[in-house]
Structures are given as structure tokens and as C-alpha cells.
Design a protein around this nucleic acid. Sequence first.
DNA 1: TGCTTTATTCGTTATTTAGCGAAATAAATG
DNA 2: CATTTATTTCGCTAAATAACGAATAAAGCA
Lengths: 100, 100
Amino acid sequence: MNLKQRAAVFKALGHPARLAMVERLGRGECCVCELLEGTDYRKLSAPTVSQHLLVLKSAGVITEEEKRGKKIYYRLRMPCVSAISLCVKEREEALGAVGL
Amino acid sequence: MNLKQRAAVFKALGHPARLAMVERLGRGECCVCELLEGTDYRKLSAPTVSQHLLVLKSAGVITEEEKRGKKIYYRLRMPCVSAISLCVKEREEALGAVGL
DNA sequence: TGCTTTATTCGTTATTTAGCGAAATAAATG
DNA sequence: CATTTATTTCGCTAAATAACGAATAAAGCA
């Protein structure tokens, strides 16, 4: 995996809505409608969520698992990103001095 | 560290030039002039590199270490991002099927 | 002091991204 | 088959980002 591809993964994670989706999927696969509800970041429209999913899929972070009934299920394709997100989350103290 | 702040960290890493800089800084502090040379991604102008450093600094990823002579030294402020980048790098197989 | 090096700030332009309403697709259900 | 539900695609606009040349600042050197 080259530099550009790696950067694309981080870029995909670099939006609150997408990061929330990834963290949700880290707790197990779910359908789009659940992701549409679940974001505590803010309420986004279905088209917007759909587009964010495409970004994550293109970067290889998630994958379309299967279609059950009317619902389409996604799951995390790079399990390590869950650990990554946790790692960053815990670095709280490292950011205090920047005013973040 | 909240969702938005975490996303900002990933966003900062989400550019080939910035990721290369972070990976370089992961091997030890260095000055701007070294970062200006070192990117195998592509040759960028000094103003552009300077702006990328600002992005990384604002997200709390790096910090301005000190000024020695004419040179300004930066270092990694969130050491875990080095490990993160390696983790993503190794997930190569996970991306084959997406055409990445 | 004047010149060179190192790095940043400013101003501008081109490109990308985010978001959404409207429309389209697909599956289940009455 | 018409309707509802779940999701995506399309077309558009507003905002953010990337990049760079010119100008600026600060430090060391001749």
C-alpha cells in the first residue's frame, strides 16, 4: 500500500460523520438506515450519508456486506481502523496546549 | 478528545505530502528544509510545505520544537500516529479487491 | 551594513468536497 | 400492480483546500 493510498484512508476517516460511521461499524455490521440514525455528529440526509459511504468504500475502509430484504449491510473492511481511532481518542492530553 | 477533533487529526494525515512529513518526523525531529527535500511524493514549494505544517500543527499532530540558527525544528506530538500509519500500510491485502 | 538562507504570510486561482432536493432503483408488502 | 421503505444517482451550489509566486521576517555571515 503506497503513500497515496494510505493518505486516502486517512482522508476518508477525516470527517466527523464518516469517523462516526466507522466507529459504529467497528461495533458490528449494520445497515445504512442505522447509520443514518446513529450519528451524534449531526443529522444528515440520506443522499449525504450515501455519499460518505461511497468515500469510505472507495478508500477500502468499509465494504458492502450483503443485501437482506430491503436493507443493505456494510461492515468494516480494515479492522485496524477501530484500534486507530481509539488510539487517537486517548491522546487527549497531547492536544490541550494547542487549544483543541 | 471528541469526534470532531479526532476527525481533524485524520484529515490532517489525509494528504500524501503531510503523511510523508509525519512519517519522516516519526524517525526523529527535523527542520523544514529537510521536509522540503525529503518528500518522495513530489517536489512542493516552500510556501506549500509551510502551509501543510500549519495544518498538522493545528490538528495537534506536530509541534514546533525549537529554532536553532536559521533553522526551525519540528517534531511529532502524537507519537501514536507513526504506529497508525504502519498499521494501515500493512493492510495491503485488504484493498486489493477494491482496485486500489 | 548588505547579502544569503530559512521559513512564513498574503493574495490569487483552480480544484475538490460537502450537502441536499429531486429523481431513479430495488425489494417487500398490501 | 400500486405503495411503501431503503438506498443510490444526478445536478447543483456554497465552502474548503491545494498550490504557488511575490512579498516579508528573522538569523547568520561577509
